Simulated scan of single mutants.
Amino acid sequence: MNSNFGFKKNFKKKNLLQAPFSFAFGFFVDFTGQMLSGLNPQTYTSQFILMILGIIICAFGATIYIIMDIVPNAPEGLNLALSERLNMPFSKIKIICDCLFVLIGVIISLIFLGGVTAIREGTLISALLTGKLIGLFTKWFEPGLKKIAFNDNDEKQLLLNEAM
């Protein structure tokens, strides 16, 4: 019996780049946080609108790197592997995993803190909405993005070969 469950043959070597890409991603998250540090919404409505805007931007960014087959960050790499292995759309796997992670967070918070502290409605909305938006964005933008990125016309191939 094969003990690698078929993962070895499907492993993409580019996924080894997840660690350095995670550091770069962390840098840009910190950089963006510094740039937006002056933004301090005071009302619940403005905080909610800002959260929804952030979810939309993150979902769009995730859609781009998934469609373009760029090295994903670790959680999305897990979601992509599960999506491929279970033959389910990435967006559905994303919702399931995010909700599972929220549930695990709630359980850990209850056990160690005696109550749910840092997990609120925004966390749950994000877990439910991000995958749904990725599904919509994929449907809307995948053909155009793939055409831009993977069009095999001679001029693009010549430029690509010259760049190497």
Rank of each mutant, 00 (worst) to 15 (best):
L160I: 10
M68D: 11
F60A: 06
D30E: 05
T123N: 13
V71E: 12
L17A: 15
I108S: 13
L100F: 15
D98G: 05
Q42Y: 00
K156Q: 09
N151P: 00
I107D: 09
L53D: 02
S3V: 11
N10M: 11
L100S: 15
N161P: 03
C58L: 14
K156S: 08
A74K: 02
F31P: 01
A24V: 13
I66R: 14
F137L: 09
S37Q: 11
I111S: 09
K147N: 12
F28R: 02
G131I: 08
L80Y: 11
C97P: 01
L145I: 10
L16W: 11
E76D: 15
P89R: 10
S126A: 15
I104Q: 06
N10T: 14
L53W: 07
L82V: 06
T32D: 01
L80S: 10
G122E: 01
T117P: 00
C58S: 15
K94Y: 08
T32C: 09
C58W: 11
L82I: 05
W140H: 05
D30T: 11
I96C: 04
D98S: 09
Y65W: 01
K13S: 15
I134K: 06
I111T: 08
L129F: 12
G115M: 08
F28Y: 10
N153L: 04
G105E: 00
I96N: 01
G122S: 02
P41A: 14
G105C: 05
L39H: 04
T130V: 11
V102N: 08
T123Y: 02
Q42L: 12
V71R: 02
K92P: 00
L50V: 09
T117A: 06
